[in-house]
Design a binder for these strands. Structure first.
Length: 1030
RNA sequence: GCCCAGGUGGUGGAAUUGGUAGACACGAAGGACUUAAAAUCCUUUGGCCAUUGCGGCCGUGCGGGUUCAAGUCCCGCCCUGGGUACCA
């Protein structure tokens, strides 16, 4: 019987699906284990080989844990809202749901062919009303909550209003935009609208005028993590700053908890680092500086209060209102000009520009509270309005930006921390003793920071504080294809729908574009109002809304009364293993943690952190192939240059490309060489053109007519020749190597190829081992029918480069084709064998053959030469047991430390050994079958049934490792001399160190190296190594 | 600039706690079987020198150091990839 994966694989996929083998149900007799993949956005292109990488790894882990006796939850679903389907809808009128569902079907089909052990009964789609009902529900809860900094958790807004009635806001310490104190009476005096407006400052989901990233091209705002380098992450369109009324989530309230939580979870250091940077905590002090001749104070934030004595000027961000208030009449005009200029610079301009130093003096002076010195106040756009208070005390001696600014405008620089030279650059390190700093002198920086904070607190002019870079998450999108907000407006004030009205269904619209008046597409919906006629919100939620808590919904996906039941949540708790790409490090993974913490606060979720262990699988990159097309012009130049090298000293020659005319490509003192190219004067002008030029120069003229290799009219050619011959200075140069006008491709190794050819992507299917199939190439690109190929050793060798997989690069590897050729088991094993899961690695199909050979070898262990099942019930030999148990240990260890690639090689080693031992023992092969079943489930199921089992191998017990089978009597000691391994000697494992030393020194080989000398030292490490120092 | 990860044969990678560097594969070369091809099997395969066998020297980006012993630890550099950027 041959290994026929085309038959085996669909057979077992059908079996699993029919028997619901992977259905997970609460079972209190078993420990739970939750393995989750980041659910995919179903794009139109389908899966390529990079997608399943993480899914295969998580599937192996899930299957392994089932065999270890865990109750495994391993669900899959779809992140179904997204821009591509909407863009397609705008172009074609097709409802995004139609496109999305079609893509989902295609994804499902592809996923099914790889043999994943998902519990498909739990599938969720974010665009399903039954699902987004709970996204809307959570939004209502966020709206109805505020964050209490005293208790460090979200609390009900109703309790807050009760407190306002009683005491005003005096005793409330909230994460809040409201700083003005008010009394209970003042609160009660407010009308409904005013109260609502005030409460908006407290709510965790709030509506406000916010500076947003507006993308005109996409017609929507974007979150900070959706903008890269001033361009939209999707589509790469320009993004500008704009003030708009938008829903936001007060994620900043959770900044400290999001930071602290990182210490409790098992994520990679680099990923935690990304999150820490994104949150951007900095400790420092807030301090108020008096302004000379003004009642106003200037609030500043600094992380270096210790350097306050070194502050020689202050800077305010141009956006701040206080600028106008304090500017002196003399400076008014200048400042106004500057503010105007700063305002009109777009965000992208500001970012892409080489750091220009700009700023203007306001005429006002601040007073340094520690030494009473008057220091000038400047306006400059290197200070950002959005961070801290938008104003700084500048300490040029110890901050590089202040330093550059001070140097530029000639402001004083005073060193206050010793230990660095500030003549060329600032000394930013927090090390050294204080100087020029009054009461701080002689202190270490750390102590000085503490002392300064104590001092300003004592004087009541400041306090120690913490700032975060994290911004609130803007939650409105002006799009159609997203969750509608459960919000209506009464008198311009937003109210939540009652929960029994959920889900608020996404309405039908005639077009998916904004309205003529610029309103979002939902404004096109008919009767988009409540029953009472109040208008509904026309924005929709962003992509991260639906993906922020899908892992919780998997626990109880069909529950229409609750998000998920308490029972299911308390059983499944949190995700034990989460696998996905690192592109979500700053977006999804922060939002999810925030969302989860909020649900935890309101008592819905029982765990504070959602993802205990997280692994980022690396991207699989494509390996593009290239052919090198000769650029005729450059080639001619190259040949010419080679010629020059032959005739003389090339150093005297200059290559010139000026004016883009490329008339005088090479020249020296006596001669101009001209390469005549396509773009030349009209025929009638040509003769006079050259004659004029020739007259104007004393030099000799060497003309290279390359009409025979580029399109040059014969007449023009003649005219050119004539022009040259009319003078006595002209020479016509003909190079014998110049080739006819045809496309030319040079093989990779041809000398100086880079100088005259340009690489061109070639479809990877036309290339094998970097050798191009010329016939297929020409039929792929008929326009190169008459092309000439410059070969090496009779072959055309292609170049290659590792790049992102994409259609335009012709390097897409589709898993379907590989599954047809090798089967899903081989694909699974190969993707794991490629390298460590977390590495980015190039896809290269060369290696898949080796894995396929291995699978076939494994299959053959169960059969004799005639192809009949041949299994023996005899006792396994010592060697067979050793091979098996070595592998059991290795595979178990490797899976548990997520080293999937090394487990595959230990499978290979084991099969090689069993094959050499001609092992056909049922017990050994049976255990091995279980070992490999998580990696290659189809072949394992088939062999498992051949072994006589009736049930699926899914719940077979993972074999137990027995030390006794791998124990050896002897260990082969490597013996090294001065650290260099010289020979090996077999000695009993339990031999004493003294005896080992003796035995080694007496060994015949040892004598050669000792060479009569006395060893100075002998190091014996039991069952490891012996080192002799001579 | 700053932060993080990494640098090992022709290629992907292995070496888990400082203890035999290059496991396992790919590719390449040679051979067996075959009319031939495919498939399969066997041998060799880090570099250099020696080659009649024995062998020897060098070698984990570079330069130092610690150690009986360094791919692994420490110091200083170089390079690659990623994140981030007037965040005070």
């Amino acid at each position: 019987m041959d290994y026929n994966f085309l038959e085996i694989e669909p057979k077992w996929q059908k079996y699993w699906s029919e028997k619901k083998t992977f259905k997970a149900e609460i079972d209190h007799n078993k420990p739970k284990f939750y393995v989750l993949d980041m659910f995919p956005y179903p794009s139109g292109a389908g899966l390529h080989v990079g997608h399943p990488l993480g899914y295969i790894a998580s599937d192996i882990y899930a299957r392994y844990m089932r065999q270890r006796g865990y109750n495994v939850l391993h669900p899959m679903g779809y992140d179904a809202y997204g821009l591509p389907a909407e863009q397609y809808a705008i172009q074609t009128g097709t409802h995004p749901e139609v496109t999305t569902f079609k893509n989902i079907d295609r994804y499902r089909e592809q996923l099914d062919r790889i043999g994943f052990s998902f519990d498909w009964d739990r599938e969720v789609r974010t665009c399903d009303p039954k699902y987004y009902k709970w996204t809307q529900w959570t939004f209502i809860q966020l709206f109805n909550s505020w964050y209490n900094n005293d208790t460090q958790k979200a609390e009900s807004i109703d309790l807050l209003t009760v407190e306002f009635e009683k005491n005003g806001n005096a005793r409330i310490n909230a994460a809040c935009d409201q700083h003005e104190p008010f009394t209970a009476d003042e609160w009660k005096a407010k009308n409904e609208k005013e109260q609502q407006e005030l409460l908006m400052n407290y709510r965790l989901a709030y509506l406000s005028d916010t500076m947003v990233n507006w993308c005109p091209e996409l017609g929507t705002v974007l979150a900070n993590d959706e903008v890269k380098d001033g361009l939209s992450e999707r589509g790469g369109h320009p993004v500008e700053r704009k003030l708009m009324k938008q829903w936001s989530l007060r994620i900043t309230a959770y900044a400290q908890r999001l930071l602290d939580g990182l210490n409790t979870i098992d994520w990679s250091d680099s990923l935690k680092e990304v999150q820490r940077n994104w949150i951007g905590r900095s400790e420092g002090a807030t301090c108020y500086f008096n302004i000379k001749d003004h009642d106003e104070k200037l609030e500043i934030f600094t992380t270096r209060p210790d350097t306050m004595f070194g502050s020689t000027y202050m800077v305010i961000a141009p956006e701040l209102d206080i600028v106008e208030k304090i500017t002196t009449p003399e400076q008014k005009a200048e400042v106004k000009k500057y503010l105007e200029w700063a305002k009109n610079r777009s965000e992208r301009e500001r970012q892409s520009e080489v750091k220009n130093i700009s700023g203007i003096f306001t005429g006002a002076y601040g007073i340094n509270p520690l030494n009473g010195k008057e220091i000038p106040i400047w306006v400059a756009d290197y200070v950002l309005a959005g961070y801290g208070s938008g104003a700084i005390m500048a300490v040029p001696a110890h901050d590089s930006r202040d330093y550059a600014f001070a140097k530029h405008f000639g402001l004083p620089i005073i060193q206050v921390v010793s230990g660095g030279d500030i003549s060329e650059e600032s000394y930013d390190a927090k090390e050294g003793k204080m100087m020029n700093s009054g009461f701080l002198n002689g202190m270490e920086v750390k102590d000085a920071i503490r002392a300064t904070i104590a001092k300003i607190e004592e004087q009541g002019i400041g306090y120690g504080t913490i700032n975060y870079r994290l911004r609130d998450a803007i939650f409105s999108r002006q799009r159609y294809w997203g969750e509608p907000f459960p919000v209506y407006y009464k008198d311009g004030v937003p109210y939540m729908l009652s929960e029994d009205k959920l889900p608020l269904l996404l309405p039908e619209v005639d077009k998916y574009l904004p309205t003529e008046t610029g309103e979002p597409p939902l404004a096109r919906a008919k009767n988009w109002t409540t029953e009472e006629g109040y208008p509904l919100e026309t924005n929709t939620m962003p992509g991260f809304a639906g993906s922020s808590a899908y892992y919780l919904r998997y626990m109880d996906p069909h529950n229409d009364n609750e998000y998920f039941s308490k029972e299911t949540n308390e059983y499944w708790k949190d995700v034990d293993l989460y696998i996905g790409g690192d592109e979500h490090a700053a977006g999804h993974l922060i939002y999810s943690r925030f969302w989860n913490k909020f649900l935890f606060d309101i008592g819905i979720a029982c765990e504070d952190e959602p993802f205990k262990k997280l692994i980022n699988q690396g991207k699989i990159q494509g390996r593009s192939s290239f052919v090198y097309r000769v650029n005729h012009e450059k080639y001619a130049e190259y040949l010419l240059w080679e010629y020059i090298k032959q005739i003389g000293d090339e150093k005297k020659w200059i290559r010139d490309y000026r004016d883009g005319h490329r008339k005088f490509d090479f020249y020296n003192e006596e001669v101009n060489l001209i390469i005549e190219i396509k773009s030349q004067p009209k025929l009638e002008k040509l003769e006079s053109y050259y004659e004029e030029y020739i007259k104007s120069t004393d030099k000799k003229l060497l003309l290279l007519p390359i009409a025979d290799i580029i399109d040059m009219d014969e007449e023009i050619m003649e005219a050119t020749k004539k022009a040259v011959e009319n003078t006595d200075k002209g020479v016509i140069f003909n190079h014998h190597e110049i080739r006819p006008l045809k496309p030319i491709f040079v093989s990779k190794g041809v000398k100086d190829r880079k100088l005259f050819s340009t690489p061109l992507h070639v479809d990877i299917d036309l290339v094998e081992n970097d050798i191009l199939n010329l016939e297929s190439f020409v039929s792929w690109r008929p326009e190169f029918n008459d092309a000439e190929f410059i070969l090496e050793d009779g072959k055309y060798r292609c170049g290659y480069e590792i790049e992102k997989m994409s259609k335009s690069k012709h390097n897409i590897q589709n898993p379907d084709a590989l599954i047809e050729k090798y089967g899903a088991d081989t694909l699974r094993l190969y993707e794991m064998f490629l390298g460590p899961l977390e590495n980015h690695k190039p896809w290269d199909t060369k290696g898949i053959e080796g894995v396929f050979r291995f699978i076939k070898k494994l299959w053959k262990l169960y059969f004799d030469d005639e192809g009949n099942i041949a299994l023996s019930d005899a006792e396994p030999t010592k060697e067979e047991l050793k091979a098996l148990h070595k592998t059991i240990k290795k595979v178990k260890d490797d899976i548990e430390r997520f080293s999937f690639n090394t487990a595959v090689s230990s499978f290979m080693i084991c099969v090689n050994e069993l094959k050499d031992l001609k092992c056909n023992k049922r017990s050994v092969l049976s255990d091995f079958c279980i070992l490999i079943s998580s990696y290659a489930p189809h072949i394992a199921e088939e062999l498992w049934s051949i072994l006589g089992n009736q049930e699926s191998i899914t719940y077979a017990k993972f074999p137990e490792f027995k030390e006794e089978y791998v124990k050896e009597n002897d260990y082969s000691y490597p013996v090294s001399f001065n650290g260099k391994m010289r020979f090996k000697i077999d000695l009993p494992v339990d031999m004493s160190k003294d005896d080992i030393e003796k035995a080694v020194l007496e060994a015949e080989e040892a004598q050669k190296w000792i060479a009569g000398k006395t060893p100075r030292k002998v190091i014996v490490v039991s069952n490891k190594i012996v080192n002799i120092v001579i």
